[in-house]
Design a binder for these strands. Structure first.
Lengths: 229, 229
DNA sequence: CCGGATCCGGGTTGATACTG
DNA sequence: CAGTATCAACCCGGATCCGG
């Protein structure tokens, strides 16, 4: 294994997850608790099958994920993060936050899969009315539905469907992302084909600037927009 | 440029800083405000000169750093992070935090340069007595002295020397790191050759468990230790 | 010395074909 | 479905050389 040979936390981390595709595999497992080989493959267009198999072995031997031989009847192995692997979430979220401003520029041929919304929603949603009763929002932007729950000041975002939600929102992933990160008003979203069923007020519960989509609204905490090479 | 072609913040970040050495170059510039080519090279043993030059061009065109043509007399270019590049600090610190537990295992041939202590010190030092007057600690573990300042609940760590410090601590970087991250008592550090001049009580100001170096003390927030492949 | 450019051998990645 | 095998292309590491 190629290593930097530096007694530095960052270098040690990159020794284990710095190779191409590694952190994207971790991202998939952060979003979907357990994955089959093919699930990961479909979410990583362009990865070679041998490379995916190699990375999974490497991450397994690094203690970041485990391969669970499934039940005897239909044995299809499942991959799941260990606690140690799940501890990468903060770092993954911070890397994703830094890259978010680059998503505002129109993507040429970029893919956007619905389940990827989970991580940015975790970053940008806030429970702005902690004293009010719990609310549930279901999102459907593609194959994988997303469930949002705001309760007592906390936000939970996960793949799946909540029962008896306060609202069900359908639309293209791009549009829902802009809507829920405060970069697009509800009116504009509806005009772009978003379907909102149920209570519309719950949007204000979790998104700050619903009606003030500042023209050059920047998702960053600070700093100028970076160029794209 | 090779890109993942995914409309995902993490993927976009990795498109720009996911290549080998890129984040280590950012780390160097986070620690030393402005660097010459050779400074970076000395801190990255093993990097090929052409690769360093290439990475610097890539990071420059990504808006992460700028190349400052120095003053006319003796022109030696300086590299400095932009605001956008400095915004990577949180992500870099979180990646480093995740890798910290891997530093406890004896490193085979790993290099440890004194100035790398700056980032872990930023992570693990706390001002535990915010109401007391400001204190200054100078560290010397190698070529680059480090200045620590605790004041009003905040910790500042930078390369350099404070004037009239409360304490001056000299020793091997490994030992100072363990001492200031609470994994080694002061007594043990002194026994290993650490020289402490000045007030010894200031250590309690910034380090939590000075006298309780739990045997298997873990720097992680949670999770088991990962294996090393 | 500083800041690279150039060349080369070997390792890694990407694409495709193939197998249990 | 879950990989392995193969091979071309590219990237990386090390050495050398070269203009200020």
């Amino acid at each position: 294994m190629r290593t930097y040979k530096q007694a530095c936390g960052l270098a040690k981390t990159l020794d284990l997850v710095g190779d191409r595709w590694s952190l994207l595999i971790v991202r998939e497992l952060l979003i979907r608790d357990a994955c089959r080989y093919t699930d990961i493959r479909k979410s990583l267009p362009g990865i070679a099958t041998n490379l995916l198999a190699l990375r999974l072995r490497e991450l397994e031997s690094a203690g970041i994920l485990v391969r669970e031989a499934a039940a005897p009847p239909i044995a299809t192995p499942l991959f799941r993060l260990t606690d140690r692997g799940r501890a990468l979430e903060k770092a993954v979220l911070e890397l994703g936050r830094w890259g978010s401003p680059l998503l505002t520029t129109p993507s040429r041929g970029d893919k956007l899969q619905a389940h990827w919304l989970v991580l940015p929603l975790k970053l940008y949603l806030r429970d702005l009315k902690p004293q009010e009763p719990k609310i549930l929002i279901n999102l459907r932007a593609g194959a994988d539905p997303i469930a949002i729950e705001a309760s007592a000041g906390n936000i939970a975002v996960r793949l799946g469907v909540s029962e008896h939600p306060d609202a069900l929102v359908k639309g293209k992933p791009e549009t829902l992302l802009r809507l829920f990160t405060g970069r697009m008003s509800l009116g504009a979203a509806l005009a772009e084909g978003v379907q909102w069923e149920g209570n519309r007020e719950v949007l204000r519960r979790v998104v700050g600037t619903v009606d003030a989509p500042a023209p050059g609204a920047n998702l960053m905490d600070s700093g100028a927009a970076g160029g794209v090479s």
